[in-house]
Design a binder for these strands. Structure first.
Lengths: 249, 249
DNA sequence: CGTAACTTTGACTTGCTTCAAGGTGTGTGG
DNA sequence: CCACACACCTTGAAGCAAGTCAAAGTTACG
């Protein structure tokens, strides 16, 4: 079980931390096609009132599967992953979460996955009890959560789509393009792609072995589609070709 | 695009069709652990007021990927599937839906998947426009949808979990046990399991080839775990062994 | 009763995993 | 500041599981 008061570092720089942000596509209405902020300023302020800023160091646990759910976290910066441990000892990375995402979805009052910080993560820690009350007073917030969760549902389906029935190279290519899009949403870095995760995490996310991931990267490099500048830094040389390989037309 | 007024059969027996039902586990509170009705009687009645009962025949399309989203459907009886067609021509079954499930989640006003009836399906057809208004007047309904969608998210993750990184036999075993649980929720049929879908659908759901599914069933039969009574009727001889094989401990 | 759709089975091939060993980077203590 | 140790990544070789291709068997239905 997470005991944030102990594990979590509190720093002065939290004073000017960005407000809680939830990005999602609209659910019911046709709206703008893109992903946008679904909280009003009022709601963001209300969330700040009941939340506290926290920071997780690299590799630190955020929540544990099966533990009593007490908080959800709204990521301000950094990258995290959620995963399940299978009875045979293997690990399955279910989702990779970025700024404006939510960590901590639960069922029956208990977390269904384990979450871990991949980089340093700053987040708003929102007590579920307080959120429950806020949702009752402000139904619009409920709609915002609905948008977010249905958006996550589609993310999960996308993940399922790339994972199943595609060969290893296509999966890796799809992953790189996806990650690049996520990154491009926050910062412009040309064709450089900073990987916030280890090969092992990529493998467990794509349902491959570490060796396969490595071999695929080598293959993509030999084909001139990418360049491995450093372990965690790739250069995407031919994004259209990667997309084609990934079967994204 | 679906044009329900034309494709859909209307029958007199709709008069006493069961009210709209949404089953889901609670989202925020600890509540009962099981899956339960999340609509009040009032809400169910309100939904009836704006909906109409429809019936889809076996193999009939319910919605088409990319088409303008106008309705969602609340299944009363029968089984349906949703799927995506990949650019390489392969098909990926994303979900299998039963009574009390919802069909028709959309993004940006368009359906994200194609849905098809696997058996005869009876459902309440709810216009999105009307639902939107109702949700505004009744925030609790919004919460109900939230429960349902977060429940579906977990279903999708379960699917992802069984699909990736398990061998074919384990996937098939997991599928059979899952289907049995779904079926047991509505009717008691001993150890008999009625498959509402073809081998092809099972294959596309599990990310296997039709031949692999068939071979796995043969293998499970030879091991004494199941019996193939008819094409679409299996007898589960040893559910615990199937669960163990599926890695459900 | 015949045809078409569906399912099963067999033989072969491909691609991923596993096992094993060799690199490369990083952080720590001498 | 260097050297060592450890964690992480890459590469190679062998084995095996699932896919593909081909054909026969079965069921459903007109």
């Amino acid at each position: 079980m997470t005991t944030p008061g102990i594990q979590v570092t509190r720093l002065g720089k939290f004073d000017n931390m960005p407000l809680p942000t939830i990005l999602a596509a609209s659910f019911l209405d046709a709206g703008g096609h893109g992903v946008a902020q679904v909280l009003t300023h009022r709601e963001r302020a209300a969330l700040v009132g009941m939340s506290r800023p926290v920071e997780f160091k690299r590799d630190q646990m955020i929540q544990t599967e099966g533990a009593r759910a007490e908080f959800i976290w709204n990521i301000v910066s950094g990258t995290a992953e959620t995963y399940c441990l299978l009875p045979d000892g293997t690990r399955r990375v279910m989702s990779i979460l970025f700024a404006a995402d939510l960590i901590g979805l639960s069922e029956g009052g208990h977390y269904v996955e384990t979450a871990r910080a991949l980089t340093e993560v700053r987040a708003w820690e929102i007590p579920l009890r307080a959120l429950d009350g806020l949702v009752r007073r402000d139904p619009r917030l409920d709609a915002a959560l609905l948008c977010k969760i249905s958006h996550e549902l589609r993310e999960s389906e996308r993940h399922l789509l790339t994972t199943a029935r595609q060969d290893a190279r296509a999966r890796v290519a799809a992953f790189l393009v996806w990650l690049k899009q996520k990154e491009a949403a926050t910062l412009h870095s040309g064709d450089l792609l900073e990987l916030p995760l280890r090969r092992e995490d990529i493998a467990d996310y794509l349902g491959l072995s570490v060796e396969s991931v490595s071999r695929c990267l080598g293959q993509l490099e030999r084909s001139g589609l990418i360049l491995r500048e450093q372990r965690r830094t790739l250069r995407l040389m031919d994004v259209p070709a990667l997309q084609k390989l990934a079967g994204m037309d």
